[in-house]
Design a protein around this nucleic acid. Structure first.
Length: 216
DNA sequence: GCGACAG
DNA sequence: ATCTTGTCGC
């Protein structure tokens, strides 16, 4: 994929971010032939919802490991265009540098938006690692082809770790720091968690109805 | 040829 | 990711 080869050279792997006052989270929900992207902007470090934007587009690209951006970037960019507040940092639900060609969706879209971004995936795409300790905050390096491509981070005890990597304009230690400081009492950071909820709403995507107290 | 494989 | 209720575990 030449597009990835061309964009990978635009990724900045050092911190180019000012004071972080807002952090955004992105996630996509699929239903029938529609992709619904949701972007939530939270205040930092309070993590209070500041803004929310969504965009829906027909799915026009299949899921292919390594090509996730081609499937999710269109709706994601459309959602960002509706945003009134440009976030200081964006946390994606997927890999950043921890990708076969070093351009996961977090780096790909991070470069297109030219915003500091972090790749925070729920599972591994490539690379090798040792299991991090079970204490929240424990982490280990993620290696591939003899180089460090990210970190495997324990955000919650007894829960599977997160795969954190550089997206754009941020270094790995800083990325790990922000991911951990965005996790309250769940495995996923608030950004991803809230974006996931927003991406699943409407569409006819049934939200679990509040069960009546009488049924319990 | 076989296994791996973000969401 | 999505199709989906009850159910296993602490």
């Amino acid at each position: 994929m030449s597009i990835q080869e061309r964009l990978r050279h635009k990724v900045v792997t050092v911190n180019v971010l000012g004071p972080v006052r807002t952090v955004a989270g992105v996630d996509i929900g699929f239903r029938h032939n529609l992709a619904r992207a949701a972007v939530v902007v939270l205040s930092y470090p309070d993590l209070a919802m500041e803004e929310r934007a969504t965009a829906e587009l027909p799915i026009q690209f299949p899921y292919v490991p390594g090509l996730l951006a081609f499937r999710e970037a269109p709706a994601t960019l459309a959602a960002f265009e509706k945003l009134a507040v440009i976030p200081d940092l964006v946390i994606f639900d997927g890999q950043g540098l921890a990708h076969p060609r070093r351009l996961g969706i977090a780096s790909h879209v991070g470069v297109l938006l030219d915003l500091p971004s972090i790749g925070c995936a729920k599972s591994r795409l490539c690379g090798e690692h040792q299991e991090p300790g079970n204490e929240p905050g424990a982490w280990s390096w993620l290696y591939d082809q003899g180089e460090v491509i990210g970190a495997v981070v324990r955000s919650k005890a007894d829960a599977d770790p997160l795969f954190v990597s550089i997206g754009h304009k941020i270094d790995l230690p800083t990325a790990i720091h922000y991911v951990l400081s965005c996790c309250r009492n769940n495995r996923l950071p608030e950004t991803t968690r809230l974006a996931h909820l927003a991406a699943g709403e409407a569409h006819g995507m049934d939200q679990p109805r509040q069960r009546s107290l009488f049924e319990l």
